[in-house]
Design a protein around this nucleic acid. Structure first.
Lengths: 153, 153
DNA sequence: ACGATTTTGACAATCGTTCTCAGCGGGTCG
DNA sequence: CGACCCGCTGAGAACGATTGTCAAAATCGT
């Protein structure tokens, strides 16, 4: 237990999403602008996680220049809308990835860095189960395994 | 380059910890200063995760003033040494907590940060098995589960 | 096409974290 | 005991990611 209080306090504003479809109220009406399309397309062009800045860079190289602030805003919306996954890298940067990629984990050699991609239905099931058991929904997770590969032992 | 690489690209270093005592190399010789003692004690005074700034604040209130930079440095060392757990809050801040003896993982609410500690013999077994299967030894791993807690759904 | 609204983008402002560097202090050696 | 070496500290500058600001540009409904 330990009433862990929310680290982030006043973040209410970013939570705009969720409007029940029975609510006749305002319709956010996301506009299909060139920039938004560009970002969405960019997101579909790679499988791994990338930082907002890398994505911004990628867009620039593609010739579809989009303001950095706009990239941030768009990514945030997409993430809120659940269209892309967002998590934080080890050094605190927000990183994004198109939502539908096949999910797998990495087995990394501590010494030479050799990486093997592994899948684990068992783990997926376990995490979902554990989460459900505690009443958590919309579950996602990160898992990485470290070890010393055969060549480095 | 390219190819799916983990969010934490070449970040295997964070796992540095473990300074084997057989290393004949330079011995950092950590000095037992007032500040370090203060930080360690402070870490032992609470159970949940706190940010470096909160810890700094806490020390100040205790009368054991320690420079912010020193707090950061010390927390980092403790984390590297594996004496405390460090992870990232949803908004990218580094948060720390005294390391509990038992190995477990965290089920964190994406929205309010509420955290539940969970254990999973199954996962432990699975990771070891997968690693062994690929010939990796000295296995360790990191796993975090994210979701939306009952109160935030 | 026209006014209402959203969005955008350049840039300033935040804010957590790290770097710099002069001064301090613990430990050691003579 | 005193000089010295070197890690340690603190204050503030520097940094880098992210967010806020606001006038100009793009869209939408009519």
């Amino acid at each position: 237990m330990t009433s862990t209080e929310p680290p982030t306090t006043d973040r209410a504003d970013q939570q705009t999403a969720h409007q029940t479809d029975q609510e006749p109220a305002a319709k956010p009406a996301l506009r299909p602008t060139r920039q938004r399309r560009a970002v969405s397309e960019a997101m579909a062009s790679f499988e791994d996680f990338r930082s907002a800045q890398e994505i911004h860079e990628l867009l620039r190289n593609r010739g579809e220049a989009v303001g950095l602030a706009t990239v941030y805003r768009t990514l945030q919306r997409l993430a809120d809308a659940g269209e892309i996954d967002m998590l934080r890298s080890e050094d605190g940067e927000a990183i994004y990835r198109a939502c539908s990629t096949t999910h797998h984990h990495h087995l990394v050699c501590r010494s030479c860095g050799r990486t093997v991609e592994v899948e684990g239905p068992a783990v997926e099931r376990w995490t979902s189960a554990i989460a459900a058991e505690h009443g958590y929904g919309e579950v996602s997770h990160t898992l990485e395994i470290f070890g010393t590969c055969p060549a480095c032992r």
